[in-house]
Write a protein that binds this DNA or RNA. Structure first.
Length: 372
DNA sequence: GTATGCTTTCGGC
DNA sequence: TTACGGCCGAAAGCATAC
């Protein structure tokens, strides 16, 4: 492995992004609770909270909560309920990301409101310089877009992300190499990126509740329980070790659409009517990208809000819309046969992409060494 | 045994 | 009283290949 010199990585995570954008657009909203909602169209209040500003959060409003419940919690507060304006947020994001990119040796966007900047060269490896740079970026973004974000600075992406989460909103947290152990040790294991409920539930019986306890666990034991790949990751991550580069991902991995039905149903025709519209939308995006697909998936949210999904991987890549629709039909038939619950929401998904131009053996295009 | 690929579910935003 | 989105990548859990 090529010996990597110490890096300095900045992680940027915008504060309550959608709601903050709405505040900026309409400063009258600024001192009120703001809830950005996704309306499903089924009834006037049917839908869920996408995000909320900190004033609304103080009243107990959270992402994913039913709109009607958020309204109840915010009764008589003068709260604003706004529909998501995703295209607009995307535009703001594009503008911001373009600015951030200019501050980095290497840049990687990881969501509509998150990014990593490798600033090793720009800062000459100095944490003081990195903190100054982060302040400059904060100022610049505030001047131009009137938006704030939380920053984490560390020797790799993992520590930078953990740092950014420690002080919100509008925070700036640095974890220097010599502070890693002291900072990470007391954290519960699920604060490590990549550790979810399942991993936590396997660790806790081993008397591993904190990152520090994980770091003391024999790596062989972890590999036994989680397999080589995950075991090795846990071992390294618990000590703040992460060598993954800051590098833009140029490939979309999946394209999907999901929608709420007017009424719950098990009627295949009604389901396919909506699903076919979604297929057409997804297919249009696919063609736009100039992709062919190999894997087709469906998803159904049942009346009880449980999620079921099915997928099928084809022998060869294609961009045929009718293959997509036919397969979606088969998959929904199968899904209906496996459950007797009614369906509330339906979704379709494509993945396993290759660029359209090459017709066969596209595999090789994935094996070309990456630049930078 | 381990790596890889496919399907399904999870979880963050 | 209950209330309930849409999208993505990652994780989990098998099956099969090596």
């Amino acid at each position: 492995m090529n010996p990597m010199q110490p890096r300095i990585i900045i992680h940027i995570d915008f504060d309550y992004f959608y709601a903050q954008i709405e505040e900026t657009k309409n400063p009258n909203l600024k001192n009120k609770p703001i809830v950005i909602s996704v309306y499903s169209g089924r009834t006037p209040n049917s839908g869920a909270v996408s995000t909320a500003n900190y004033i609304a959060r103080k009243h107990g409003v959270k992402s994913g909560m039913p709109i009607a419940l958020a309204k109840k919690k915010l009764a008589d507060t003068g709260a604003a309920f706004l529909p998501v304006d995703h295209n607009y947020y995307e535009q703001v994001s594009d503008t911001i990301m373009e600015i951030l990119k200019g501050y980095a040796d290497n840049f990687e966007q990881t969501g509509i409101d998150e990014a990593y900047l490798d600033v090793t060269k720009k800062t000459n490896g100095s944490y003081e310089a990195a903190q100054k740079l982060a302040q400059d970026i904060k100022q610049k973004i505030y001047d131009k877009e009137k938006l704030t974000f939380s920053v984490g600075i560390g020797p790799n992406k993992l520590t930078a992300k953990i740092a950014a989460n420690m002080q919100k909103p509008n925070g700036l947290t640095t974890i220097r190499p010599e502070q890693i152990e002291k900072t990470l040790s007391p954290l519960p294991v699920e604060k490590l990126p990549g550790v979810g409920a399942k991993t936590k539930d396997k660790l806790n019986p081993l008397n591993v509740n904190t990152v520090g306890e994980l770091a003391k666990t024999d790596v062989q034991k972890l590999i036994e329980v989680f397999g080589r790949s995950a075991g090795t990751y846990l071992h390294k991550a618990s000590s703040g070790i992460d060598e993954t580069p800051v590098q833009a991902k140029e490939t979309v991995e999946s394209i999907s659409r999901i929608a709420t039905l007017k009424e719950n149903t098990r009627d295949l025709n009604l389901i396919l009517q909506r699903a076919n519209e979604l297929c057409e939308e997804v297919h249009a995006v696919l063609i736009n990208h100039g992709f062919k697909y190999r894997t087709i998936g469906i998803a159904a949210v049942m009346v009880d809000l449980s999620l079921r999904s099915k997928s099928k991987t084809l022998e060869n890549h294609t961009n045929d819309l009718s293959v997509f629709k036919d397969t979606v039909k088969q998959l929904f038939e199968k899904l209906l046969a496996e459950s007797d619950r009614e369906i509330r929401r339906v979704g379709v998904r494509l993945s396993g992409f290759v660029k359209e131009e090459a017709n066969q053996k596209q595999i090789t295009s994935f094996m070309e060494p990456k630049e930078n």
